[in-house]
């Protein structure tokens, strides 16, 4: 049992410190990397909770996809120039800190004062059932494709919409017609073509008369 306590203590302290680092560091890149630390340690807590599948998904999606997306964007935007600028709101911070502290106090109060876990609220998946099914992935699958089929489908539609939306938004409006490759060639090529055409016409006109 003690190893669990040790593990939890480690995970919670590192996650909190890394969270603090995420919002305090100057560079967005460092901030994103701190978020990766938070993500890994929260995933560790998922393991402690007996939900290995969720931990894996958390690492793959957050650390593997979302944070990488952030880093790519930062690379695209080239943020180095403004590193000397102030990083926090001068006035807003004096409002933000009390509000955040108050919020923490309230939520922590709820967290500490006895949460509802009475027997009659319990669901159909005690640890032994999950073990019988073969693990948390199988247990999640049994509900995801039965009771939560519709939300699952809706989530997939949401992802599709987000993917299309991201492409539309990020596309360069100056390069409107990716579909027609000839336009990608410089203007010079176009004028060449048209002059060629007019030359051809000129040469053909006398022929028809003759």
């Amino acid at each position: 049992m003690t190893d669990q306590i040790v593990a939890f203590t480690y995970l919670s302290i590192v996650a909190s410190v890394a969270g603090l680092a995420t919002i305090l560091v100057r560079s967005p890149v460092h901030s994103a990397l701190s978020l990766v630390v938070v993500v890994f340690h929260v995933a560790g807590m998922f393991v402690l909770l007996g939900n290995g599948f969720l931990a894996a998904v958390q690492v793959i999606v957050y650390a593997g996809a979302i944070v990488v997306l952030f880093l790519f964007t930062m690379m695209l935007l080239d943020l180095r120039r403004h590193e000397t600028e102030r990083t926090v709101h001068r006035r807003q911070i004096w409002l933000a800190i009390p509000i955040a502290v108050l919020l923490f106090a309230e939520v922590a109060w709820i967290a500490i004062s006895k949460p509802e876990t009475s027997e009659n609220l319990k669901g159909a998946f005690p640890p032994q059932t999950i073990d019988e099914l073969g693990g948390s992935a199988q247990a999640l699958a049994t509900v995801m494709f039965t009771d939560y089929l519709l939300p699952f489908e809706v989530a997939s539609v949401l992802l599709l919409a987000a993917a299309i939306g991201a492409m539309v938004l990020a596309r360069n409006p100056d390069e409107e017609s990716l579909a027609s490759p000839p336009d990608m060639i410089e203007d010079a090529a176009g004028t060449d073509e048209s002059s060629e055409q007019s030359e051809r016409e000129l040469s053909e006109t006398p022929a028809t008369h003759g």
Partner: peptide, 29 residues
Amino acid sequence: NAYLLVGAILFSLGTLGVLMRRSVLIVFI
């Protein structure tokens, strides 16, 4: 309660970051 407390810490830190940082990217993070 311990898990909920860690969750509360992370949530409040996030809120603080959203409210006080100027960089759009860090607000996002």
